[in-house]
Amino acid sequence: MVPDLNPVVLLFASIFTSNILLANFLGMCSFISISKDMKSSNGLGLAVTVVLTLTAMLNWVLLQYVLIPLDLLYLRYIIFIIVIAATVQILEMVIDRVSPALYMSLGIFLPLITVNCAILGVALFMQIRNYSFLQTVIFAFGSGLGWWLAIVALAAIQKKLVKAPVPAGLKGPGITLITIGFMAMAFIGFSGMLSVQ
């Protein structure tokens, strides 16, 4: 059954209370490695949002019109991954042509989106939760924005952390993970206000 959800609630929930990164801890690798500077974080956030929305739409169509009618649901992982990889490849070529500057600043991270688990995660959530097409688009777009918000927030905190007296053993990924933990607690604080499943 398609769940009965207010689109606006779904959008805000996917950005804040069910933030794909801080509530589900998906897409951590690039989140930790790129959040060191603001410009790359913004670029990557934008790229993730675009890829997330596009692939969720494509995957929803394939799921509803190919996998479910043919009773091939067990193929969803492989199909979703193929779609994600192909979309990233096409996007990479288009960005290279249209905006070489953006292409340069994203560098290796654009192809790395292929293996960003947040993207596969969203595709799987929309299947588990039985979202309609519109809900899928809103949920994917919101999740992308949420991921973008989280990485930019972390980049900003990292900037302050440079000056902080962090114990030697916690420098680098250690303090980053602790920071993410605090951020997650803050975001979970919203969860009483909105809830979607």
Binding site: L70, L72, I78, I79, I82, Q89
Partner: peptide
């Protein structure tokens, strides 16, 4: 199942080469 995977991969590969 193999046909579905092959057809979807084929379509995407074609899309990539056209782009």
């Amino acid at each position: 199942a193999p046909i579905v995977v092959a057809v979807i991969s084929g379509i995407l590969a074609a899309a990539i080469s056209i782009v």
